[in-house]
Amino acid sequence: MIFFQLFYTFLLIGAFTFGGGYSMVALIQNEVVVRHQWMTAAEFTDLLAVSQMTPGPVGINTATYAGYTAVLNAGYPQWAAVCGSLIASLAVIVIPVTLVLLLSRWLLKHKDHPRVATVLRFLRLAVIGLIAAAALGLMTTESFGVPGLNLRFGVSLLIFVAVFLLSLRRKASPIVLILASGLVGLLVYSL
């Protein structure tokens, strides 16, 4: 039965993907497109484009959409497809959340132990590097346009500098900055 298969497949996907959404995408593709053939490769590519453009974690977005499409393609009505999407989204978080809760409980008890404190000190340094790498990895022509004297790159650079400086001073809320940048894009590129 497709609902059990969905649950089991996404349970495993959740348990075995380390390192966030994009590494999960490869595994989901393998399971959903190649192994179970719940959707075509073209449908999967569309799904990735949509995940980039909608709010939320990529891993959850992909699971939700894959669950929906799989059930629909198997010939069930739309309400069953909605159930399928909920099953896939829940299945993908069950095991990681359980592990996180166990780790949190342990950590809250032992965080003041000198050994744990030293390990955490090193982890914090590494995390600064992790976040820097995420920002560097996004500095692409897809985010900014092609470097040079053109409207897209100039506007992108201005938005980047303005948002960067405002969030360095921690004055403006990221929500306001996101809404404002979207509005600037809409206005500038509509002219």
């Binding site: 453009m53 000190r121 914090r124 340094l125 995390v127 600064i128 976040i131 820097a132 995420a134 920002a135 996004l138 500095m139 897809e142 985010s143 900014f144 346009g145 897209r152 506007v155 992108s156 650079l157 938005i159 980047f160 500098v161 303005a162 948002v163 960067f164 969030s167 360095l168 921690r170 990221p174 900055l177 996101i178 404002a180 940048s181 979207g182 509005l183 600037v184 894009g185 809409l186 500038v188 590129y189 509509s190």
Partner: peptide, 27 residues
Amino acid sequence: RIFLGLRPAVVALIAAPVFTMAKSAKV
């Protein structure tokens, strides 16, 4: 069009914490 404006903002939003949190990480 909205997304053309959003993308550079998202990169800036991720870059800023590198500097704001460096102090807490005792860099």
